[in-house]
Amino acid sequence: MKVIVPVKRVIDYNVKARVKPDQSGVDLANVKMSMNPFDEIAVEEAIRMKETGTVTEIIAVSIGPQQAQETIRTALAMGADRGILVKTDETVEPLAVAKILKAIVEQEKPELVMLGKQAIDDDCNQTGQMLAALLDWPQGTFASEVKFTDGKLQVTREIDGGLQTIEINMPAVVTTDLRLNEPRYASLPNIMKAKKKPIDMKSPEDYEVDITPRLNVLKVTEPAKREAGVKVESAAELVKKLREEAGVI
């Protein structure tokens, strides 16, 4: 089976994000960027499925600036077979990404699209669901375990209060959660091999998708600083405070 794994170039998870002084967004100048960690998990899962013989080809897709090619190369160095870069310097919202991915799916005809449940930069958690809707495919979101048997996928989902296992028909969209696997590091030889793997260069126009943002960002601010706590004398006082001051019980 052929798998498409969309990978997003995001601010590295180790970087402490700073808001631009004009509150228009996060300052990305001179900031280390890397693959969205949830997408790394998706790449890893696809590679494992290839190693067990379920998957025959893995295509890593990224939508973003020229540098997103490096993110695709990371996926190729981990073990993906080829890449597609849809190049744009504009802001692409989840809906636009889903529309482009839909067009790619129609061309490539994979049986599975596997992607991170969300990206750690905007935390939208929308692309996979929107793509499934646009394609009218089944979706298995927040996967912590994926099994392929008899042409169907068993997806264990991390939900509030526990795990839910569902069976979905193929083709399907699966979004990956943190506990699905621990992604491998690329190795030096594989980084060098990845340089020779092909990456198709495309643009949103190639897929006739209008990526104009539908949302207006009013302002971006840093989270409020955490204030010092107070010590309570007794459990009764704690309950009182939780009820009267915090209003949570």
Partner: peptide, 20 residues
């Protein structure tokens, strides 16, 4: 000849991830 700036960057990225 196999090495260029992109390759060096990718190698350093990988090394940094393992190191961290």
């Amino acid at each position: 000849q196999n090495f260029d700036r992109d390759a060096v960057t990718a190698i350093l990225d990988m090394a940094q991830a393992i190191a961290e």
